[in-house]
């Protein structure tokens, strides 16, 4: 089986190796701005978040200060909205991943076949990914899921059913549908790109051997897509962990806290209730969650950089 899906270029051989023993290196000088800025961007806020998370810091009572140890974490964990918000975050990530990977794979297989107008149809499919999240949220909220005027309500009334108030009765699912609508095209585009690098001869050989489409899909297509699927899962997880705009626009975390995920909780504690300390503790927890995912992603990219998949 070919592993041609993933090829990271290894750095080119130096054309002119930097003169040995020279203190002033232009190559280093060119790197400095990027490294310094990214370093500051990453380290300073992170250290501040960590620091704020162990002090008492509320913008509404600025006279109360001082080190409080893990109190902020305790308050956060005791917040009745905290565990549900972790639950919502995970349900949101897992559901959108499932919908986008399964949907994206099926659509990629479909669009790997020739049909009239395929190029234009493909543009239609990927379009939702380019819609700004706040626009996407409002289209879904007002025009599709609205209990009176929404598209679904029209359809329900057409077949004689009572329309459903999706955002009131199934708020988290409504958010999941909105987010999945935006991210399935992303999965589709990546999986289709990977699929198009699949060796046609291999598939034709399997066909000649009498393998049906289902067996070809399971034994040739899926193994080929394995790595691309892993990439989609990891990259989407990182973005989905920070889903905010859709919730902010469509439900403001409600009704109650039914669509409050971790980012929205941190926003609500920090920028609406002005408790910097507790919000920062929430930020630290988000960083830990993201790290669990990104360790795998970085490890995989590192393997690629070393060219382990280049046969």
């Amino acid at each position: 089986m070919t592993q041609q899906t993933i090829i990271l270029p290894t750095p080119a051989t130096p054309i002119a190796p930097p003169a040995p023993g020279r203190k002033f290196s232009p190559a280093k000088l060119l790197l400095t701005p990027s490294v310094a800025m990214l370093g500051l961007w990453m380290i300073v806020p992170l250290v501040m978040t960590l620091y704020f998370s162990v002090i008492r810091y509320n913008l509404l009572s600025p006279d109360q200060t001082g080190f409080v140890g893990l109190d902020n974490y305790r308050y956060l964990l005791e917040d009745p909205a905290f565990w549900p918000s972790i639950g919502h975050t995970l349900v949101l990530i897992v559901s959108v991943l499932l919908i986008s990977v399964v949907g994206g794979t099926l659509m990629a297989v479909l669009f790997d076949q020739k049909f009239p107008g395929r190029g234009i149809a493909r543009l239609f499919v990927i379009a939702p990914f380019f819609v700004m999240p706040t626009v996407g949220a409002l289209i879904w909220k007002n025009m599709i899921l609205h209990p009176v005027y929404g598209l679904w309500s029209h359809l329900f009334r057409l077949v004689g059913l009572e329309p459903i108030d999706w955002l009131a009765d199934y708020p988290l699912w409504s958010i999941i549908v909105m987010v999945a609508w935006q991210w399935t095209p992303f999965a589709f585009l990546i999986l289709l790109t990977s699929l198009q690098s699949l060796d046609q001869e291999q598939r034709e050989a399997a066909q000649l051997d009498g393998a049906g489409p289902v067996r070809i899909f399971i034994h040739i297509t899926l193994p080929h897509l394995k790595r691309a699927i892993a990439v989609v899962v990891m990259i989407e997880s990182i973005f989905l962990l920070s889903i905010f705009a859709e919730i902010f626009t469509a439900t403001a975390g409600g009704p109650g806290t039914e669509t409050t995920n971790l980012p929205y909780l941190v926003y609500s504690i920090g920028l609406q209730q002005f408790d910097i300390g507790i919000a920062s503790a929430g930020g630290v927890i988000a960083v830990i969650l993201a790290n669990i995912v990104s360790i795998f992603l970085v490890r995989m990219l590192a393997k690629n950089l070393r060219g382990e998949y280049d046969q």
Partner: peptide, 17 residues
């Protein structure tokens, strides 16, 4: 790799600072 890994830090982790 380190540069790429900075992209993986969730925005919400540094929202407050």
């Amino acid at each position: 790799l380190w540069m790429l890994s900075t992209k993986m830090m969730p925005a919400v982790g540094v929202l407050i600072p």
